[in-house]
Amino acid sequence: MRIPIEKFITPDRKDSIKRTWYKFSSNPLSIIGLISVLIVTLSAIFAPVLAPYPESWGRWVDFSQACQPPSWKHPFGTDIYGRDILSRIMFGFRYDLLMAICILAMVVPTGTFLGLIAGYYRGTWIDTVIMRITDIFLAIPSIVLALAICALLKPSLFNSMMAVSLLWWPWYSRLAYSIASSLRNEYFVLAAELIGAHPLYIIFSEILPNCLAPIFTKMTLDVGWVILIGATLSFVGLGAQEPTPALGTMVSVGAKYMPDYWWMTIFPALAIAFTILGFNLLGDGIRDALAIEEI
């Protein structure tokens, strides 16, 4: 029996996924990033099951256990109400990840959509209007804008999420714009225009699929940064409020008891660092594996 040689030499989707995974896994840092992200995500999802003291997440007091230093019983110690810090960090991952996901779910579609439209209509008034508004948002220091918004509104997790979203979308519209405006002159877009395809079809079906890899990579990198900004807002008291176990809030509350009860601050802070580092390493790994030039 003769097997057509194409079966052996033509790369299909599966092969390209395999090749990408090979490139990704050949960098140990990427694997470290992936493992950290998995640890964070899994402990967030299964926090009620995995946490040694699940009741520690909210309003709960046990003064007999208050202010315990790290021990076998409480690996990261306890806070002034006797709540287990490790358990609270696991629940804290929940809030921080949820915040990052919600923010990105609002920011990525909005920014990408605006950027694609502006890129496709490059050189027209549509481009000018969208991209100048983008520039105005980028010109304001993000943390100042977030602080201003949060100070105006009632400090809460939801309001801080809105504030971060408002300052984050321009980055996605810039990214989508740069890709779309260069793809705009590719012959396949020109061919679709000559055929008579609708502009929305061209934007979403011809251009968008070619932007997804860099956007996905930027999302991964951004999870870390969004968590950091969220934690910053919580730290200055404008984000999630006690007793919500957001990591930034825990750092902020614990900071009052430094340096005697150092574990109340240090461990949540390390958890933030661990999360951000994990997502950044993962994002870098994905970027290198997909050979995306610059974000």
């Binding site: 590719e186 012959y187 396949f188 020109l190 061919a191 679709a192 000559l194 055929i195 008579g196 395809a197 011809e206 699929p209 070619n210």
Partner: peptide
């Protein structure tokens, strides 16, 4: 009126199957 371009590399969308690419004019018209 249709056109065939100079660079075959960029005249086909890399994210689409050949079938989808040729099908587009049929669907549009």
């Amino acid at each position: 009126m249709q056109m065939v371009f100079q660079d075959p590399g960029s005249s086909l969308n890399p994210r689409k199957r050949i079938g989808q690419i040729i099908e587009l004019p049929l669907r549009v018209h």
